[in-house]
Simulated assay, not measured.
Amino acid sequence: MINAKTFLLIIFCLLVSSCSTEYQAEPQELDEWTISTISPKYYTVRGDILLIVGEKKQGGWRGMIGKTTMESESPLSWDGGERFHSGYSINSDELPASFYIRWHSLANKKTYNKTIKVSEDVRNKMREYHDIRCGYYDLLLPYKNNILLGLAPDGMISVFLNGGCFDNELQFKVQAVEYKVADDFVYPELSEEAQAYVDEHGVPVGIW
């Protein structure tokens, strides 16, 4: 006959085994991702419109990325810990096939637009599971689930992938084209600090 102590030990072992089995279950598939934007420091941009076509090409999403895009730590690079800022979040396991973006560059008062195709290779990188934890709370953040668009004042777009535990990984660059705005369109002003920098250094071309 099993005594009480032995019975409790068996129950405990069964619970531990159950928890272990649950912990080792197959990882959950990627079902949420974002498209975010960033501009070089002082070269402020404002997102206007974002249209996303899903990979099944049966529908998509529409939204604004953000009134003021976050800036990098340097005027001449994309360096910094910036990620998921000015982001547009999508709750879906369907990833993008392409997207259209239009934005205003305040430094040189120009508006750009571009349709960008997302390759199967990029989508596969987003879906790839990595057993990786990071941060103060040691959270499991296994996916490169953020497409980060570096929007330069000359219209160049640097397309990165990153995630909670991943730094920016450049995928490719594309050149946007200038978009003709209405004659009475008024561009917002730069901050005093940004305007002083642009007045001194101008708007470089071809460095981002």
Rank of each mutant, 00 (worst) to 15 (best):
I2C: 05
N3W: 07
N3M: 07
A4R: 11
T6S: 15
T6W: 13
L8H: 08
L8M: 13
L9Y: 12
I11A: 15
F12A: 09
F12I: 06
L14H: 05
L15V: 15
C19D: 13
S20Q: 15
T21F: 14
E22F: 15
Q24A: 15
Q24S: 15
P27T: 04
P27D: 05
P27H: 05
P27K: 04
E29G: 08
L30H: 05
D31H: 11
E32V: 12
E32K: 12
W33E: 01
T34W: 13
I35G: 04
S36L: 07
T37F: 02
T37V: 09
T37H: 06
S39N: 11
S39C: 14
S39H: 05
K41Y: 08
V45Y: 00
R46C: 09
R46T: 08
D48V: 09
D48F: 06
D48M: 10
I49S: 15
G54I: 00
G59W: 08
G60Y: 01
G60N: 03
G60I: 01
G63T: 05
M64C: 11
G66Y: 07
G66D: 13
K67E: 15
T69W: 00
T69V: 10
E73G: 14
P75G: 05
P75H: 06
G80I: 02
G81Q: 10
R83L: 05
F84L: 11
S86C: 11
G87C: 08
Y88V: 01
S89N: 12
I90S: 00
N91T: 07
Y100Q: 05
W103S: 00
H104L: 09
S105E: 03
L106Q: 03
N108I: 01
K110N: 02
K110E: 02
K110R: 12
T111L: 03
Y112R: 00
K114L: 07
K114A: 04
I116Y: 07
E120F: 07
D121I: 09
D121K: 14
R123I: 04
N124R: 10
K125T: 03
M126T: 03
R127P: 06
E128V: 08
E128I: 06
Y129T: 09
H130D: 07
C134A: 14
Y137E: 14
D138C: 13
L140V: 09
L141F: 08
P142Y: 04
Y143I: 04
Y143T: 03
Y143H: 08
Y143P: 02
K144F: 03
N146S: 13
I147Q: 00
L148P: 03
L149S: 06
L151Q: 01
D154W: 05
G155N: 01
V159M: 13
F160I: 13
F160V: 13
L161W: 10
N162D: 14
G163K: 01
G164L: 03
G164V: 04
F166I: 08
D167R: 10
L170W: 10
K173I: 10
Q175D: 15
V177D: 15
E178D: 12
K180M: 13
A182C: 11
A182P: 08
D183Q: 10
D183I: 01
D184L: 04
F185A: 05
F185R: 02
V186S: 03
V186C: 03
L190T: 07
S191D: 12
S191A: 09
A196E: 14
Y197G: 12
V198E: 08
E200K: 15
H201W: 11
H201A: 07
G202A: 12
G202L: 11
V203M: 05
V205D: 11
I207D: 07
I207M: 06
